[in-house]
Write a protein that binds this DNA or RNA. Structure first.
Lengths: 340, 340
DNA sequence: CTGAAAGCGCTTACAG
DNA sequence: CTGAAAGCGCTTACAG
């Protein structure tokens, strides 16, 4: 029997109290006598009243909306993260306004402007490039920003990633210990800190053990580009015996190309290692050796950081890196006696 | 140089006009002289002013927010749909408040209440079960609802699906024409119209050609349940020579189980057909024969329907079904001389 | 075209 | 604890 739009004034009239009293009953922590609460709740129920969140947001200055900017939804890491982020935020009484971003800095800056128009309390940018000037704008507007799965040093924005450099190192050790001699890298997009850090750790560790990279190609986080890179690598006179691919999403494409198009065997002819440990990595058709990004911990840290900054604007930005293990499966030869 | 919160009044002061004038300059279609526009825009730019969308929403009664309820984000069909929906809505000046739903009717009803608190202009429920009473509530509140990839007859809600019954029929014909004799079905969740319709069309067509279903098991849209069903089916004394699986997401699990766990060949030992044609279906590791859901057209129709109802509240609800082709790939034996 | 004023539905000091 | 009142930042009749 809900009316088209019930206001607190109507509830007040029916309950025989003031409009302020109605508001108090619906404001956690505000004072109202048991009797008032009872009368108001009864009237509200009869009329089907619920407070207008937008009005509340306007006067309180808190919208309880978090803006989430995402790209790369075709990489399954992000739907998983999105779901975790959204569930957790819902539990804490926040809601998510989602923006899908083409991955250009300009486009993202526009989106973030629009987000700010909605008076969001905070912004999570997932694997997306924001300009520093935009970051400054958000800071001036008092809106905290947390970068998820991407860092931007010197931007003053908080970020949450896995220990990408360390992850790259682990892969190098794993491949070297397994006796690989001709190692190549199809990297994550070099415009992303994530891609750069993994490549850096990987190459650094390789060099330390006296190995040089056979080849390094930017896979641009794209299936097509990664497949082309795999074709290129495997058709060389001296093809690699192991390829570290900058994320799982590209690694699947590389495996498809190598096995079904080129007719080679994985790992007998070439070992493949990915990064992320998306659910599909454990599916039998791929059984991909990869470095796990602890997405649960990463989303938790992201939310803690963001809400922390929302509740205490003086808090300084933090850079959180969460370690994840290398998960050895069937797509790469293992070092003898290897244990995680 | 943006201030922490610039209001139209401040812009008005700087531009030497009234606050109303500022508002008009930022309201498409409102009248203002070229001179006023110029002065206001200049002042707005200097101060970094942007209208507060929430305030606008309150007075205009239009939030330009669309509530999107999703479940099953692990099924790749939904991230794809989500991205299309979000992009298209952004282009039309709407934004998406996202709610991830556990798939119980109660939980969904709660979420939708919260959505309404945000004064959303419309709701898209993707593969999610809403109660009819909730639908009635939304209608009373004047908020149009469109069901995406799910129907609910008699609810008065609009829905957009593919022609699921017809799709089921196509699969039956395809398998029968290929000479399969022992045909089984691991269905989509029987609580969903989508699952029921596909199963219905499939069985109806099978019966018409004098074939009986060897077995039918509800796969609950779950990888685990579908895998268990596959084990069950293939360990029978007289195992099926073809299985129609209610969606691609489950079909991948079925293929993994049959090939890597049971050591059988697809399609030599058993043909597998899915439903959806998610991107992964075309990946070489699965090469899945499936019925395509034209997700582009489905999302377009969803948006057209929703915005249509928002702009013209008298418009009656519609039930749209969009046909999609069967895509023959390598996971199922083809009828001789088969053409799409 | 333009400004003064009312009002959207709330929250929150301020008195009592 | 409670009510009257101000105000959040806008849009939109209403006069002029």
């Amino acid at each position: 029997m809900a009316q088209t739009k019930v206001t607190s004034a109507e509830v007040a009239a029916r309950a025989g109290v003031s409009q302020s009293a109605v508001s108090r009953v619906f404001t956690p922590g505000a004072s109202a006598s048991a009797k008032t609460v009872e009368k108001v709740k009864a009237a509200a129920k009869e009329l089907g009243y619920r407070p207008n969140v937008l009005a509340r947001a306007m006067v309180s200055g808190k919208s309880r909306i978090i803006g989430l900017v995402v790209a790369y939804l075709d990489n399954h890491f992000f739907p998983v993260a999105l779901e975790l982020l959204s569930n957790e935020l819902q539990k804490k009484g926040y809601h998510v306004l989602i923006f899908t971003a083409p991955n250009s800095v300009d486009a993202v800056d526009n989106l973030v402007q629009e987000l700010m128009d909605y008076q969001v309390d905070g912004i999570i940018a997932a694997s997306v490039s924001m300009s520093s000037t935009l970051a400054d704008r958000a800071k001036l507007a008092g809106i905290p920003v947390v970068l998820f799965n991407r860092g931007l040093d010197g931007s003053g924005m908080s970020s949450v990633t896995s220990t990408n450099t360390e992850g790259g190192r682990k892969v190098a050790e794993f491949l070297v210990d397994a006796g690989h001699q001709r190692i190549a890298h199809i990297s994550g997009w070099s415009g992303s800190s994530t891609g750069r850090d993994r490549a850096f750790g990987f190459k650094e560790s390789l060099a330390k053990s006296g190995h040089a990279l056979v080849a390094e190609i930017d896979g641009m986080y794209s299936r097509e580009v990664a497949s082309e890179a795999a074709r290129d690598l495997m058709s060389r006179p001296d093809p690699p015996d192991a390829i570290f691919v900058g994320n799982d999403h590209m690694a699947f494409a590389v495996m498809d190309t190598i096995r079904f198009e080129l007719g080679l065997r994985v790992p007998e002819d070439v070992s493949i290692v990915g990064y992320d440990d998306v659910p599909m990595a454990s599916w039998a058709a791929y059984d991909l050796t990869t470095v796990r990004q602890p997405v649960n911990q990463m989303t938790e840290a992201t939310i803690d950081t963001l809400l922390g900054q929302i509740n205490d604007p003086t808090r300084t930005s933090t850079k959180i890196e969460i370690p994840g293990p290398l998960i050895a499966r069937g797509s790469a030869r293992r070092p003898e006696g290897w244990t995680p």
